Simulated assay, not measured.
Amino acid sequence: MKKLFVVFIMISFVCIYCGFFSDQAIANKSGAPPGTTDDCTKGHSGTVNSGSGNVAVDFNSGGTSYEINNTYTIDIVIGGSAATNGFSSVALDENGSNAGSINLTNAANTMITSLNGKNYVSHKDANTQITDSWQFEWVAPSLGVGPVTFYVAGNASNGGNNNSGDKIYTSNTTITGPGVGIDKIDSGINIDVFPSLFQNDIHIIGLENRESIISVYQINGVLVHKYKSEGEKEMVLVLSRLDKGVYILYINDGKHVYTDKVFKSN
């Protein structure tokens, strides 16, 4: 019997970068979690968003939704007066792993760097490529990657090659768009989930020795519950307060994905 599953992805374009006074961006200074302690004022004096400029992110010429595996154009623009400008960005899923992929459309002023298993896109040379805007393509993830956050940050620099006089600007744009597929996806997770028709609880066995994010969505893409497994042999999801209906169970252990449809009877 065929089953339906739904992938729900949220892309937040969050500009929180610091450390831009070199001509090239530093990959791990995008301010992205988990575990970051970077703050823009550590690389530059002043307060974030205290200048007269701004930074804007445009998704697919004003688009507000997407489909899985599709390619979209991302434009980043820094407004205001500056000698040089720069940016750095990284797209992460809820486990802190890269989500989707980046295609460079202008290798003269953008580049991809890798650090600690993550790929970042940034300006290439702020001193020779004087610009306040950049464009690249983002390829939406394959099935079952869950929510995605796209961290982006921009610096309007005075060109002094020091940590004073530069302006850091931040913004946030959220894009949503569920994709629909056929059949259950388990992509390498050897677990048991039961019962698929439940009244109060769902049991998950087989997540021992690995941390996992477990999410429950309504069929329309609304997140209703989120859990974190710390490696327990068995987890019990208490879902007695949910209304009767169809829900999507999504499990991600950082390397593998499981998603399937479950039914609450009453």
Rank of each mutant, 00 (worst) to 15 (best):
P34I: 13
V236P: 00
K184W: 00
A27K: 10
Y72C: 07
G188Y: 06
T64H: 00
I248Y: 02
G80M: 05
A91W: 03
F87K: 13
P141D: 03
D243W: 01
V7I: 02
E137Y: 02
F13Y: 05
N161Q: 10
K228L: 12
D243T: 06
I214A: 04
L197M: 11
G80P: 06
F21T: 04
I204W: 05
K264C: 07
W134E: 04
I175E: 02
I130A: 02
N98D: 15
D243R: 11
T84L: 10
F21S: 10
D93E: 12
M1I: 12
Y66H: 14
G206Q: 13
F87M: 14
P147M: 08
V246C: 06
I11L: 12
H225S: 14
I205P: 00
F59C: 03
V90Y: 03
F20Y: 10
D166R: 04
I191P: 07
D186E: 11
G100H: 04
A153C: 14
S81P: 05
S89C: 15
V55K: 02
S157T: 05
N69M: 09
T128N: 14
P141V: 06
I112K: 13
E230M: 13
V14G: 00
N85V: 08
H123K: 03
P178D: 07
A140Y: 00
L223P: 15
D243N: 15
D201I: 15
V238D: 14
D192C: 11
G181W: 00
K233E: 12
S22K: 09
S187E: 11
V145D: 10
I185N: 04
F87H: 09
A156E: 01
N95H: 05
Y169P: 09
D253Q: 08
K29D: 03
S122Q: 14
V224A: 05
T259D: 01
F20E: 09
S61V: 08
T113C: 02
K261Q: 15
A156L: 04
I219F: 10
V55P: 02
F5S: 07
T173H: 01
G160I: 04
Y151P: 04
P195R: 01
T36Q: 05
M111S: 09
G254I: 11
I251Q: 04
F263C: 07
Q135I: 13
N161Y: 08
G160Q: 07
Y258S: 10
D186W: 00
V55C: 09
G160N: 14
I11N: 08
I214F: 02
L197N: 15
N163E: 06
A25F: 01
D183G: 04
G188I: 08
N119M: 06
T113E: 10
T176H: 09
S97R: 15
N252F: 08
I68S: 11
V7A: 11
L237S: 07
N161E: 05
R241L: 14
Y72E: 02
S45W: 02
I213P: 00
K244L: 12
S88Q: 11
T84D: 07
G117W: 03
V48R: 14
F263G: 00
